[in-house]
């Protein structure tokens, strides 16, 4: 097949144009039932070949590394018209192998620069509604992994991530990551994490604006979920978010809430050591806060001896100097606490 590709004198732009025509055909073909089945199959096979050819131009193949000029041509032609939209909407009509190729193709295109511009970003900025299409597609279990992977690649662009965070979509992730199919739930979790950690300034802005509902939902739906894996992933991600310097304002408010402290202290008591360790990384922020509100201090004082005992026993499986350093600091903080009158 690779040899076949070489012998054809088509330019990368030709392949994109042909693909677009074939996608248009695939898009319509359902509404033209009189078309001969064999003809249809032939066209779909040709479409599959084209998508694979584009993939090997972008990724290279076993015989050749990708050529920058060819990649640029392909990318430019691809985004010159609405090819991405066509490809996304036609995905259900493609066979499994071609779906995978298409997903990899879309992923790679997000990273291609033409004249040192990510033109995929410009295209998506003008077509943000495509994110809604991808989002809907994710709810179809047969297509979820393909659309999910495309979605995650698209939010590499800050402008796209911002759109998603500001939309209602972000709320759906609280449910997606608890779907029963592990592979799909894990895909959603990966996207959720990407949304909340990749673009620092956008994330900080989002969290500041949406602090109330976001952390309420985060606590009740994720940290207090009955599902082990949800709790474990959520506590890890929470640590990542709060420990990021760009989110320090949000963090300061988070660690001043008694409700949050209660949830964290419960997680510290979990039977799962992985969860305990991750919970510690958030709990230490409550303890290290130099302006602890009185109610926080009182909770810590009331549980002083239990906390000191629990923390003293808490050890990661692998030796971790930083953990030990953090731990002794937290132990000192807590040991030194005295009850305070509620103001």
């Amino acid at each position: 097949m690779k040899g076949l590709f070489k012998s054809k004198p088509r330019t990368p732009a030709d392949i994109v144009r042909q693909t677009r025509d074939l996608l248009l055909y695939a898009d319509r073909s359902k509404s033209l039932p009189d078309l001969r089945e064999s003809k249809r199959e032939e066209k779909m096979a040709e479409l599959s070949r084209n998508i694979r050819d584009m993939k090997s131009i972008l990724y290279g193949n076993s015989e050749a590394e990708p050529v920058a000029e060819a990649c640029a041509q392909l990318t430019q032609e691809f985004f010159r018209e609405d090819t991405l939209r066509l490809l996304i909407t036609c995905l259900p009509k493609l066979n499994l192998e071609t779906r995978k190729d298409a997903t990899q193709l879309v992923a790679n295109l997000q990273r291609q620069q033409v004249n040192s511009r990510l033109i995929a970003s410009d295209y998506l900025e003008a077509n943000l509604d495509l994110m809604n299409v991808l989002m809907e597609g994710f709810e179809n279990m047969d297509l979820a992994l393909h659309y999910g992977a495309m979605f995650r690649e698209c939010i590499r662009h800050q402008i796209v991530a911002k759109y998603v965070l500001e939309s209602e979509h972000v709320k759906k992730y609280f449910d997606f990551i608890q779907l029963p199919n592990f592979d799909i739930a894990a895909d959603a979790a990966a996207t959720f994490k990407e949304l909340l950690t990749r673009h620092k300034s956008t994330v900080a802005e989002f969290l500041t604006k949406n602090e109330d509902w976001f952390f309420t939902d985060y606590n009740s739906k994720l940290l207090e979920s009955s599902n082990y894996i949800t709790r474990r992933q959520a506590i890890k991600l929470l640590g990542d978010i709060l420990l990021d310097r760009s989110n320090s304002a949000v963090m300061t408010r988070y660690v001043s809430s008694r409700d949050n402290l209660r949830i964290l202290m419960n997680l510290l008591r979990e039977a799962s050591k992985s969860i305990q360790i991750e919970a510690f990384h958030v709990f230490k922020l409550f303890a290290a806060n130099q302006n602890k509100p009185a109610d926080i201090i009182n909770i810590l004082v009331a549980n002083k001896s239990k906390l000191l005992r629990l923390l003293a026993d808490l050890k990661p499986d692998k030796e971790d100097e930083r953990f030990e350093a953090d731990k002794s600091q937290v132990l000192r903080e807590i040991a030194a606490l005295e009850p305070r009158d509620l103001a």
């Binding site: 499994l96 592979d183 894990a186 082990y228 474990r232 992985s274």
Partner: peptide
């Protein structure tokens, strides 16, 4: 056993994804 497993979720995700998408 996910609690004992040293593998991170990302590699588990990749493994299950690989297994469900190969045919």
């Amino acid at each position: 056993d996910l609690d004992q497993s040293r593998a991170d979720f990302d590699s588990l995700r990749r493994e299950t994804k690989t297994m469900s998408l190969l045919s």
